[in-house]
Design a protein around this nucleic acid. Structure first.
Lengths: 282, 282
DNA sequence: GCAAATTTGTTCGTATGTATT
DNA sequence: CAATACATACGAACAAATTTG
């Protein structure tokens, strides 16, 4: 009796899902059917289903029913560019990687804005909060599915000094970094990537069609690009890219590694091998 | 009337939390108090509180009350080792980074096991599933708080060929990679990191004290190390490290970047600037 | 295009159990 | 042991979304 009834029901449904009796996309019995099957009240059945829904095992749709959640096939992005410029998560290298993997990239026209740097930009560019910066924002798709949201922030200086295309709401085909190299003789001597995981913003949840309970996080990739004016590396751009965490993986190569593009890893927990006994979710 | 009552109540409580009227760790009014405040039934109040709990804003404790969730200060791990070997997420480099940041690392004695390679190991080492491998497993702490779980798998060959310490349940002070270099003249010519985000296993949820609803994911870092026997890079070890996603960030340096260790980034969404109107969570 | 049937969503009331102080 | 606070469970009614006839 330690286990409450709604949990026992949830467990049993869970086993039916994990053993493959109920396949992804399939409909669960309706609430009324479950009431009859388990001899519990409808509220208790609903508690059980909600327990499963919270854990992402099922999704309920009003007027239709409750369905086993569909998993996405993960997409792999290589953060380190190789000698040929393949990968790197940005610009043409990223799109080439997608094509190399047999899929089709597409992207929106950039939206350009001058805004007063909020904290997360100011910190990266080492400027006071509120300083005007140019931001270029783009939605990126794979096979027409929303894949990532990208925003890059540049100090206004770069525009003043002649990089006028930064303010144009059109693609820079060879990438903004090489445009800046061409135009201002500005060389990116290095960059630093930060990776963090956080709940989606409303905009992100909407764009990626994530459930509105924040259960699925986004991976936020922040790349700061540095130039050197003689006194050490100084940031001149910050790129913020977000990816839904449930269908993206990232790869970083270092030194000599196999030539082939990395395949998705099995997205699977490595539990305590044979050590752990049948410990159930308590 | 479009918005159900429990959502309006949840919204109002949420605003009280986000505006700082209710601070992290503080207790919410009890259910009975909320019943009086909002003139709703206790079940409706509970629905509102559950809505907040699902999103990780509050946590309920039986017999005590409901409290605003405490956030952790993020810890930053540098995945790319610098010239001095600082960082790199493994072995002494990782512990040096922790000390450099003014915190204290500790770790468990490794647990060594010979097990039949499950799929996620077999795929990395490119061996058939079920082949025996040596696994070394370690818990790692920062300031006594659980920080990460690490498992490294090696092919049995390495042991057979003389790397007998791999099977000893004691620390290899300078790291297993340099031990293998010393003993077998095995050079790691490169490695590939994979980063993915997934719900915690039961063991992980327990070790990291994560809520049991799987709301907080773990970041899984998979590093495959390669050697070269003349026919291109071949994997000889696979290290799986998991970190709770809500309190860890990762940094990868490339080229010339500032010397100082990277500080945590503001873990904050960049919403559609001024574009988005007052769209509420629907 | 509409009405009926189906299915989940919201809300109330009530009673009892369990954990903590 | 008593008081407090959240957890579980039942029953009932009506609302809202969707599909079907």
């Amino acid at each position: 009796m330690a286990e409450p009834m709604y949990r026992r029901i949830a467990q049993e449904l869970r086993e039916r899902i994990e053993s493959g009796i109920l396949n992804p996309g399939e409909q669960l019995p309706t609430e009324v059917e479950l009431v009859e099957t388990y001899g519990a009240s409808r509220n208790t059945i609903r508690d059980a289903v909600k327990w499963l829904a919270t854990r992402g095992l099922v999704e309920s749709r009003p007027g239709q029913g409750t369905f086993v959640t569909q998993r996405f096939e993960p997409f792999v992005t290589t953060l380190s560019a190789d000698e040929t410029g393949l990968g790197g998560s940005e610009g043409e290298g990223a799109y080439r990687e997608i094509r190399e993997r047999g899929r089709t990239p597409s992207w929106s026209q950039p939206r350009v804005e001058v805004q007063n740097a909020p904290r997360y930009i100011a910190e990266r560019l080492r400027i006071p909060q509120g300083t005007p910066v140019i931001t270029r924002r783009q939605e990126r798709y794979i096979d027409k599915q929303p894949w990532s949201l990208q925003v890059t922030a540049y100090p206004m200086d770069l525009f003043t000094q002649g990089a006028t295309d930064l303010m144009m709401a059109k693609d820079i085909p060879d990438g903004a970094v090489s445009y800046l190299a061409r135009t201002l003789d500005l060389e990116e001597v290095g960059h630093r990537d930060r990776i963090l995981v956080r709940p989606p913003s409303e905009e992100e949840a909407w764009f990626f069609r994530l459930p509105d309970d924040g259960r699925i996080s986004v991976v936020s990739l922040v790349r700061t690009g540095y130039r050197d004016l003689g006194s050490g590396p100084e940031p001149f751009r910050a790129t913020f890219t977000t990816f839904p965490a449930d269908r993206n993986q990232f790869v970083i190569n270092s030194g000599s590694v196999p030539r082939a593009l990395a395949e998705p890893a099995v997205d699977q927990h490595f539990d305590g091998s044979q050590t752990s006994s049948v410990r159930e979710t308590s």
